[in-house]
Design a binder for these strands. Structure first.
Lengths: 141, 141
DNA sequence: TATAAAGCTTCGAGTTGCTCGAAGTCAACA
DNA sequence: TGTTGACTTCGAGCAACTCGAAGCTTTATA
């Protein structure tokens, strides 16, 4: 799997077999910058429906799984609960007929992230206001 | 630190800050858009060192307390733990000598919030990429 | 070939920061 | 006087991790 588009093709729209190199949970954690514990936790919750395991039960992450992990992180950070992510996974598994529903979910999260950015900028302003005040205070003494 | 006004002034930053008790927890919650539960929780954790109570034990929030609540929210959202906010409060109570330490804390949080904004923008891009892909997919069928 | 180390596994318990609800207090008003 | 409503405290519950123990394979070393 080379790019994001392919990834979305395989994981979000369909679920074909991914034949790319596989990573252990430790390697995957480093690559996507999500802790091993969280990756396993997500897997236990069924959020990696296409994740493979070898004969010894060892998890094997494909490139597609890594991209998927990034999407999960994104959805989680924008406020989706585990349960809601599970529902998103369900929709993905059902297939193309659920594209409108999935689109609606992503569109809602897009709005939320936009509002989060506005909120973060307000927070930044507050901090900078205080920092300016302190700076001012320090030059006065 | 001699009085509440000095403290809040040097910390919550609005000048001049009104420290007259005015609002019930319900009113305060509406004004700052933080739940009553959270305001009480923060108070229980000692994060409102100058919050007054009337004879019946009812909390009375001043304008200064509202500003302070906003700062607490900001610090919390930028990743400060309750314990760290407690330490910040300690520094505030000690007084002017701790201004450099408090400045350092706020400066660190400013950096963090800036990085959070960058991260949010990356998330937004990922969502928009997926939305575009879905849009494309829908026009193709 | 024994054994030790590394790297994974599962599972259950602990942590943080809320979030909720029950039970009680108190002031105001019909 | 009784009821309503807004508050109080306190303890339990919850989501999403986060950690650590115990065990299983595979690989490296003696």
């Amino acid at each position: 799997m080379v790019n994001m588009e392919d990834c979305i093709n395989s994981l979000a729209m369909d679920h074909p077999l991914d034949t790319t190199p596989k990573y252990s949970v430790t390697q995957a954690a480093k690559l996507v910058e999500i802790s091993e514990h969280t990756l396993r936790y997500y897997d236990d919750k069924g959020l990696f429906p296409f994740l493979q395991k070898n004969d010894a039960g060892k998890r094997l992450f494909s490139e597609a799984d890594l991209q998927w992990a990034k999407l999960l992180e994104c959805l989680s950070n924008s406020g989706l609960s585990i349960k809601e992510m599970q529902q998103y996974v369900e929709l993905c598994i059902i297939g193309d007929s659920t594209v409108p529903q999935r689109y609606a979910i992503l569109a809602r999260q897009e709005k939320i992230v936009k509002e989060q950015i506005r909120e973060k900028k307000r927070q930044l302003k507050l901090l900078q206001f205080k920092l300016d005040y302190y700076k001012d205070w320090q030059t006065r003494i």
